[in-house]
Write a protein that binds this DNA or RNA. Structure first.
Lengths: 333, 333
DNA sequence: CTGTTAGCGCTTTCAG
DNA sequence: CTGAAAGCGCTAACAG
């Protein structure tokens, strides 16, 4: 069994209060400080955070709930969240919802029972019901990437529609008129990006034939199948817009399998810039999200709530996106 | 503030002990059970795991320390570990060591202060010093992928040397004699795989010229630079063995940038089968690790220690590997 | 600055 | 089966 504050009380002859005060950075007579430090070292004393948490009702732990922990997007986010949190002395308890809304709600409850000080989520649900327990327990929550339908929760994200709109304009500016899209309507981000695409087409007066719209899911498979379907058309699009990382990769794979090539036969516009983008040839021209800022801002926002108890209204932070030029877009004419 | 066991005591008129017993699955009179359940529902009562942990000194939480949380290998592992743990009612506290040994040791201490019941680590260090605090606190540790130099800690891994040996034999069986390797000597797994390679070459009576050996680091960059160097040689190898996922990707990228192609100009033998392997063309022939078993076995082993307190000797579980045929190896002659 | 005291919310004897 | 009481390790008043 490890040493407790009581052991170091016996060792030093000081009172619990004094020692506790020292541990929490309070002022203690130099000679006592020396005694305490010696005892701590000798007994290998380390604070029992459980006991501390019980009395302070603050655990210096933040819960993180993601829809899929193995996704590179989330892994990257977790990295930055962890880094920012560590600097502030916080740790993170991670839950994987495995794209399951029910599990997501259970995860929230689990975290609350663990008395986390706050929660950061990249949610599966877009309906706020799963957050009810957190609200009741008065534990702050910040979402990343995907806001709630009614925007009733703090969120850090990008302007998906705008980012897509601008990107597609580039395609159009390069002379493309027959542009297809591979996306989804289920997920919030997909939906927004898809509508940004439609907006860009509309503003240029271009129509999108039905068979150029593939909404099969925001996944590797969705991208793969969507692209396969497009490549089977007798009148193929000259360019394709893919609305996230997985979809982009899936589409690239389908193209590779087809014998056609990019950008000679078809141009690509992708989304997200996680490491693997670099190994694909040709380099896909794509929209990039500010991954580190997404994580850092979420932490900042959450800790504002935790430490200052700011109640105010719900905040939505919308970060700007970048655009990475590759060589997957051919200029027509 | 959320309800406590005391509130439900007042609501039901029963004693704390009875309620606690109910909560822990003990036998209670049917009528009392009904009363308790009603009160729990009404008051939205949820156990405070902190308090419970304080008295039982078991938190039903396992600490997970990985060298890089954004790595797909670790993300995938975390997924399976979390799944297995959840089934048993455990949660996981995750720490990212960011490839820093000092941080790794701090992480271990942090987890101990949080009173985790056990620790699973994919370590940075190969020296057991960082585990000393865990040993002193008598908290079981299971490593994945990388054992300690002196094998003084439980570990679940594959037989890296053997896997490499067998894979390289395939290359040789295909008529290759001028085989290069891109690996590293720093990391344990790289070292083993590299030596498995040497063993295969040696047993076939083949020599490896110095310029065919690139030990620049087990990373994307290592793979990329290594491959670039190989491609600049006047007498190029006919095949290259790359000893992990990142190295494989880096090498593929270098090849893509060079204008040469695989397997026409050079054959590839890779390692690891994480999703992105599927999008690369050609499909790399590679050694695959049993990711889910690695995670599950580690959990099994750890819980054996936690729940049954098995002390015994240290266990090392070595899982078998698979071999995925792609079309990156050209048969010579 | 230091010590005493009273809990935080829960489990766990031990009687009844 | 149930209840009373003690205590897990720590912090937080409040006196001194």
């Amino acid at each position: 069994m490890s040493a407790t504050i009581r052991d170091i009380k016996n060792q030093t002859g000081l009172s619990l209060a004094t020692i506790s005060k020292y541990l929490n950075g309070g002022n203690v007579l130099p000679e006592n400080r020396v005694k305490i430090e010696a005892a701590i070292r000798e007994l290998h004393y380390e604070v029992n955070e459980l006991a501390r948490g019980l009395v302070t009702s603050r655990t210096k732990t933040v819960g993180v709930v993601v829809y899929a922990v193995e996704s590179l997007f989330n892994g990257t986010l977790i990295k930055y969240i962890g880094k920012a949190l560590r600097k502030l002395g916080y740790g993170l308890l991670i839950c994987d919802s495995d794209n399951d809304e029910e599990l997501e709600e259970r995860n929230i409850r689990y975290l609350l029972n663990k008395k986390v000080d706050g929660i950061i989520a990249v949610p599966v649900s877009s309906d706020g019901a799963f957050l009810k327990p957190a609200r009741e327990a008065d534990v702050p929550v910040v979402l990343i990437d995907r806001p709630l339908k009614d925007s009733s929760c703090d969120c850090v994200r990008i302007d998906n529609r705008q980012a897509a709109l601008r990107a597609v304009r580039v395609l159009i500016a390069n002379g493309h008129r027959d542009i297809a899209v591979i996306s989804s309507e289920r997920e919030y981000t997909a939906y927004e990006r898809y509508h940004g695409f439609l907006e860009a087409m509309d503003e240029a007066g271009l129509s999108v034939p039905e068979e150029y719209i593939c909404l099969g899911g925001h996944s590797f498979e969705g991208g793969n199948l969507g692209m396969k379907r497009l490549l089977e058309l007798s009148r193929k699009p000259s360019a394709v817009f893919m609305t996230n990382y997985e979809v982009t990769l899936g589409a690239v794979m389908a193209l590779n399998d087809s014998g056609l090539s990019c950008p000679e036969d078809i141009s690509f516009l992708g989304f997200d810039d996680l490491i693997m983008s670099h190994i694909i040839k040709p380099r896909i021209t794509r929209v990039v999200q500010p991954m580190s800022s997404l994580g850092e801002k979420a932490v900042e926002l959450l800790l504002n709530h935790i430490e200052n108890g700011e109640e105010l209204m719900t905040t939505e932070i919308v970060l700007g996106t970048g655009f990475m030029e590759g060589d997957s877009i051919r200029a027509l004419e």
